[in-house]
Amino acid sequence: MFELSKKDPTEADTAQSPKPSRSYRTASAAPEGYAVIGRSIKIVGDLQGDEDLRIEGDIDGTIQLLNHSLTIGAEGRINADAYAKSVIIDGEINGDVHGSECVTIRSKARVVGNIVSSRVSLEEGAQFRGSIDMDPNSVKSALEKVQIQFAVKDGARDVSGASPIRSESTGRAETKTVAEKAAAKS
């Protein structure tokens, strides 16, 4: 599902370990240290992770990367609410964006929705319609709310007996789709 371009200290161990059953490609063009969802990928469902992520594909669901950065690349098309530490938008998003640290809207971006972040920067030429909430209390409460929502969802999944899906490359990322959840439950 993801093109992982990580080069971290665990890489050597990963290279010697058996090949993962799911195939991950290394994106040579991608900078080091984050996962990439390629332009041919479409995900319908919630996405949760513990590493930086760049999206060039289509996402229809909620994205939660509370302690990491999210980049919506020029080819990225998001129909979702996104929660991250920092968000850079180069592509299109139709949904609310929450950045606990900052949100950057680049010149080619098209955004329809509400942005909640105490630091927002906007390049000339960017298309934006919606609201920008710069109240630190709004940022805090929005992030607390989504953490609770995801905790409830995680709780429901744990009760159902399904184990979280993790990225085989690092064992850290937990990023899954509704389809994967359904498959896991069955």
Partner: peptide, 22 residues
């Protein structure tokens, strides 16, 4: 009007909600 960095910069720290109708 459109969202503008100049206005955002002036509003920084105000804790406002800026609605951009464009």
């Amino acid at each position: 009007g459109a969202a503008r960095q100049d206005l955002l910069a002036l509003l920084h720290g105000s804790g406002c909600r800026l609605i951009v109708a464009n």
